[in-house]
Simulated scan of single mutants.
Amino acid sequence: MVLVVTVAAGLFVSGVLPDTVATDVAGDALYVVVVWALVVILAPRLPALAVAGIVLVWCTAVELFQLTGLPDAWGAAFTPIMLVLGTVFDPRDLLIYAVATVVLLAVDLGVSRVVSGAR
């Protein structure tokens, strides 16, 4: 459910709202949430710290891959590629990915404490 809602929010931010710094930051943060959800779906028993590491490595790798120009070229030929690989490198995105990953790690650990305390 989180994945579906987050993808829908990301599509709304990227497709409906005007392109601003705020929507760029929101899009990056939502991307982190989508990657986090996918990692948890694919490996549900991974500890939160491992999930955070995978998410941060993936997001950083995708951002650095943009330096090759390939995501921009591929996105011009097939627009949905832009949703996964982005287009052009922006160093600010690396910071947003790191902050969003730390926030999700804190949320995950907090929720885990509450759930295990309720048992």
Rank of each mutant, 00 (worst) to 15 (best):
M1T: 09
L3R: 11
L3G: 07
A8N: 01
G10P: 09
L11N: 10
L11Y: 11
L11S: 06
F12R: 00
V13G: 01
G15Q: 09
G15P: 09
V16W: 06
L17R: 01
P18V: 01
V21G: 02
A22H: 10
A22K: 00
V25K: 03
V25R: 04
A26C: 11
G27Y: 07
D28I: 02
D28K: 12
A29H: 04
V32M: 00
V33R: 04
V34R: 07
A37Q: 12
V39W: 10
V40A: 14
I41M: 12
A43G: 06
P44N: 04
P44L: 07
R45K: 15
R45A: 14
P47M: 01
A50T: 14
A50D: 06
V51D: 12
A52P: 12
L56Y: 13
V57H: 02
V57W: 09
W58Y: 14
W58E: 11
T60K: 03
A61F: 12
V62S: 11
V62K: 12
V62D: 09
E63T: 10
L64E: 08
L64T: 03
L64V: 14
Q66T: 15
Q66N: 07
G69E: 05
D72P: 00
D72T: 00
G75I: 03
A76F: 01
A76R: 14
T79W: 12
T79P: 12
P80F: 11
I81Q: 05
I81V: 15
M82A: 15
M82R: 14
L83D: 02
V84I: 15
L85P: 05
L85Q: 06
G86R: 03
G86K: 05
D90G: 03
D90W: 04
P91T: 02
P91D: 02
R92K: 08
D93W: 04
L94Q: 04
L94I: 06
L94F: 04
L95W: 15
L95H: 06
Y97P: 01
A98H: 05
V99S: 07
T101Y: 09
L105R: 02
V107T: 03
D108S: 13
V115N: 01
G117W: 06
G117H: 01
R119L: 14
R119M: 06
